[in-house]
Design a protein around this nucleic acid. Structure first.
Ligand SMILES: [Mn+2]
Ligand SMILES: [Mn+2]
Ligand SMILES: [Zn+2]
Ligand SMILES: [Zn+2]
Lengths: 135, 135
DNA sequence: CAATAACTTAGAACGGTTCTAAGGTTCTTG
DNA sequence: CAAGAACCTTAGAACCGTTCTAAGTTATTG
């Protein structure tokens, strides 16, 4: 059993961020284990449960820094709050509207054909597919 | 040339809403002419330009009532603000991230194949495709 | 025309997010 | 390793889009 305790110090430094106690604690919650979809509030609650004191302001700062560094992507599916997604590869989402849950599905299962060409003078940035479902 | 001045009084009453001065003014801005994508603020600015006094609270109330009546759909593409769409049929969106513009494209041009089945115990509500572009 | 129900509104409140500014931590350099 | 510099964290205020409250107004009904 090797390699089950990634060195977040390294990846933080690679992102140009000092590996502070708070950022390492947040990185652990976010990146050890499988892909996650968190809100600032939910991440704050989780990291506090590890008994590492982190303010909500730091959670927001860190989420934004991780996003800017390409470690996270932001997902906007409902008014009023953002989700942050540790899966930065190509994929799409189920959004369970009745309880606010987000689930991934791989983009290679789905085929999107016949997308019109972007408006004059614009270049494609990303295609998001959101499959909204209810319980 | 007939029928170029729709009777919003009728459609408002059909939606269970009294055709007040404010709602008729808002309906005119929204529904005469082609499809629109507005924010509360942008609609408020437009309706005020017609010299009909309407408060921002009424704009919000009316947008929500029109949405509940099925006259509008809400589109969430960016954090912090909602768009309201007069096109309630099946279609998808270009979102020009650099300037906040939304444009429709028909959903029958695009083919989405191989969508995974929704999670256990959920039923499909809608599929949104957002093509994000930048200038 | 009342009488009533529905509506509009200013301003307060709210909730998620960002900002400010002061103290603390991490890094660099010698 | 000490000290300075750079960077980071934080409480609380501010911000901004949206909703709520409560008081006055308007539309509808008979
Ligand atoms: Mn930011
Ligand atoms: Mn509402
Ligand atoms: Zn995801
Ligand atoms: Zn549209």
């Amino acid at each position: 059993m090797t390699g089950n305790s990634p060195d977040f110090t390294v990846s933080l430094r690679a992102a140009g961020l000092r590996p502070t106690r708070q950022r390492v604690a947040l990185a652990r919650v976010l990146f050890e284990g499988g892909h996650r979809h968190v809100t600032a509030e939910s991440l704050h609650a989780e990291v506090k449960a590890t008994r590492m004191p982190v303010s909500l302001a730091t959670v927001y700062n860190t989420l934004n820094q991780f996003r800017e560094a390409g470690l996270l992507r932001e997902v906007v599916v409902a008014p009023g709050r953002s989700y942050f997604d540790t899966n930065t590869g190509h994929h799409h989402h189920f959004f369970v509207e009745t309880d606010g849950e987000l689930h991934d599905f791989p983009s290679d299962e789905v085929t999107i054909a016949g997308l019109p060409t972007p408006p004059e003078g614009t270049k494609l940035s990303r295609v998001d597919v959101i499959v909204r479902v209810r319980r």
